[in-house]
């Protein structure tokens, strides 16, 4: 039988993680689905678990001049209602889950779940978010694109936990979030897209695009983006076929029970095109 521990302080959680092999449960919504057993039976975790959901000191949204900081046990709903949270993230949360899940699930849990179809990740990639990982004797900060290593694979040591998500503040002239799901709420994405652009004096100062569920991880190509920074908005639009060409070979979706790769690829390219042409 697996051991489970309810941590109510960060110190307790870190000590527990340091004492053996534990899986971390925050809101628990994804962990439940991955470890489902049967009605009337306890959740079928295969490893020991440490519950961190009740660590109040990690339930916060703070900001300074440069960043917004979201604690690991902060609910999606709290972020949605917060004045400080980035608008892109709020738009995503608004569409990614129904009220019941939003009141339960956490952003940190979403990140740790590392699903290629995770909507919030797409926004966090565009926002250049970083993840704070803590253990009893160390704290380190990792960029989200480095933290996520593959499908459900993350850069987290067995004695570490995510304690905070750091999101740099940016001003975009325009941003778009598009969740392409089989229905309008309460569904896993077939693919998702975030585009953000900053235009000053008709010049592209910043351009970022990220796609979910078209590759093993969220797809963001900073080298492609940088090629077009500095162009006039007119030049950018004239280059649309080049941009599509640039992304074309990197978009490698799969067939599954929700959609097929042809659709995912074409719609991904359509979304890029639509975003650029409407900027």
């Amino acid at each position: 039988m697996v051991e489970s521990h309810i941590a109510k302080t960060l110190e307790d959680a870190l000590k527990t993680l340091n004492s053996g092999k534990f899986r971390i449960v925050a809101g628990g919504t994804d962990m439940l689905i991955q470890n489902r057993s049967h009605t009337g039976m306890p959740i079928g975790y295969k490893d020991n678990v440490v519950y961190i959901n009740l660590i109040n000191e990690l339930d916060y949204i703070k900001e300074d001049e440069d960043n917004v900081y979201i604690g690991a046990t902060t609910r999606l709903e709290t972020i949605l209602k917060s004045e400080n949270a980035p608008k892109i993230l709020k738009n995503i949360i608004h569409e990614m889950a129904g009220p019941g899940i939003r009141h339960t699930a956490t952003l940190a849990g979403n990140i740790a779940n590392a699903s290629p179809a995770g909507d919030s990740l797409v926004g966090l990639y565009v926002l250049d978010a970083s993840i704070k990982c803590q253990s009893v004797d160390n704290t380190r900060i990792v960029k989200i694109k480095d933290f996520i290593q593959g499908v459900r694979k993350i850069d987290l040591k067995s004695n570490e936990m995510i304690t905070e998500v750091m999101i740099p503040k940016y001003d975009f002239s325009r941003f778009v979030f598009k969740k392409v799901a089989p229905r309008l709420s309460d569904a896993i994405s077939k693919l998702s897209f975030v585009g953000a652009i900053r235009i000053e004096d008709n010049e592209v100062k910043d351009l970022r695009m990220a796609l979910g569920a078209v590759y093993m991880t969220v797809l963001r190509k900073e080298d492609i983006e940088s090629k077009y920074i500095g162009q006039s908005i007119g030049e950018l639009k004239n280059n649309i076929e080049l941009i599509i060409e640039d992304y074309n070979s990197f978009i490698k979706p799969i067939d599954d029970q929700r959609s097929n790769k042809e659709y995912r690829k074409q719609v991904a390219l359509n979304l890029i095109k639509d975003f650029i042409m409407k900027s």
């Binding site: 309008l184 709420s185 569904a187 029970q257 929700r258």
Partner: peptide, 16 residues
């Protein structure tokens, strides 16, 4: 059957 739960078999929500 490939759509074996309410997540993958899509019936309408109030939004739809």
């Amino acid at each position: 059957i490939m759509q074996k739960n309410m997540t993958d078999y899509i019936i309408p929500t109030a939004m739809d």
